[in-house]
Simulated scan of single mutants.
Amino acid sequence: MVRSIFIKLLVWGCLVLALPASAASVLVFGDSLSAAYGLNNPQQGWVSLLADHLEPKGHTVINASVSGETTRGGLSRLPALLDRYQPDFLVLELGGNDGLQGLDLNGIQERLQAMIDLAHQANTEVILLGIRIPPNYGPRYTEPFFALFGDLAAANDLVYLPFMLEGVAEDPDLMQSDGIHPTAAAQPLILQNVLDILPATLR
């Protein structure tokens, strides 16, 4: 009897030691750039690659990204997702489709701020991924659009990646024919950009 209890305690102790010090859940909340748009297999997308990297460490990755999503749609969807998953981290990757539509910059920033506020109210740490858009609307729009992500990061003291497609968007061989979405070959590079800024608790 004593020997049986001892063995059970020993096994339990080994399981505890095997667990990560701080397992965390990560909710990725983005648009087509995070939804593996145009790829033959969703598992090729950078979010799936992130899960492959983090889940062996005991973390959980949930991808709630939707192709075509805007900040308006994201703001309407986020409360239910925060309530359902109660994530430790929110990787916020939205705004690109708003920019492509030339929507009002103040409105984009206000809706992103509202999502950040919702996450903080749920005790969720926000990781903000910034994006650049093509120069169609000229620098008077595209430069302030890019800058608003940095402004949000500074105002809210967020972990921040200025341009998630750094090293990718400049290379036509890494972009699909539309010039907007990255290829499967680009996904590991995007993953590395994200990994480089992840909090130490995840890395």
Rank of each mutant, 00 (worst) to 15 (best):
V2M: 06
I5Q: 09
F6I: 09
I7A: 15
I7L: 13
K8E: 10
K8A: 13
G13S: 11
G13A: 06
L15I: 11
L17M: 14
L19D: 04
P20Q: 09
A21Q: 15
A24F: 00
V26I: 15
V28D: 04
F29Y: 15
G30W: 02
G30N: 07
D31V: 08
D31K: 05
Y37F: 15
Y37S: 01
Q43T: 15
Q43V: 07
Q44F: 14
Q44T: 04
G45Q: 02
V47A: 07
V47G: 03
V47Y: 03
S48R: 10
L49D: 12
L50F: 08
D52K: 14
D52M: 07
E55W: 02
K57W: 05
H59A: 09
T60R: 03
V61A: 09
V61S: 08
A64Q: 08
A64P: 00
A64V: 02
S67L: 10
S67D: 15
G68E: 12
E69H: 11
T71H: 08
G73Y: 11
G74Y: 09
L75E: 15
S76E: 15
S76H: 10
L78V: 10
L81M: 12
L82W: 03
L82M: 13
R84L: 04
Y85M: 00
Y85P: 00
D88W: 01
L90P: 00
L90E: 08
L92A: 06
E93H: 01
L94W: 04
L94H: 00
G95Q: 06
G96H: 01
G96Q: 08
G96T: 12
N97T: 02
G102F: 01
G102S: 03
L103P: 01
L105W: 02
L105F: 03
N106K: 08
Q109A: 06
L112W: 00
L112Q: 07
L112H: 00
Q113V: 00
A114D: 07
M115L: 09
I116G: 04
L118Q: 15
A119V: 09
A122C: 08
N123W: 01
T124D: 03
T124Y: 01
T124Q: 03
G130V: 04
I133H: 05
P134F: 14
P134I: 10
P135Q: 12
P135G: 13
N136R: 15
G138E: 12
P139E: 14
R140K: 10
Y141N: 04
Y141R: 07
T142W: 09
P144G: 10
F145N: 10
F145S: 09
F145I: 13
F145D: 14
A147Y: 03
L148W: 06
L148Y: 05
F149Q: 11
F149R: 11
G150K: 02
N156H: 13
D157I: 03
V159N: 14
Y160L: 13
L161A: 05
P162V: 12
P162T: 11
L165Y: 10
L165W: 05
E166T: 03
E166S: 09
G167Y: 10
V168A: 12
D171L: 02
P172S: 11
L174H: 11
M175I: 12
Q176A: 07
S177P: 00
D178G: 07
G179A: 14
H181M: 09
P182E: 05
T183A: 12
A185P: 03
Q187W: 04
Q187P: 01
V194H: 00
L195K: 13
D196L: 09
D196T: 14
I197D: 06
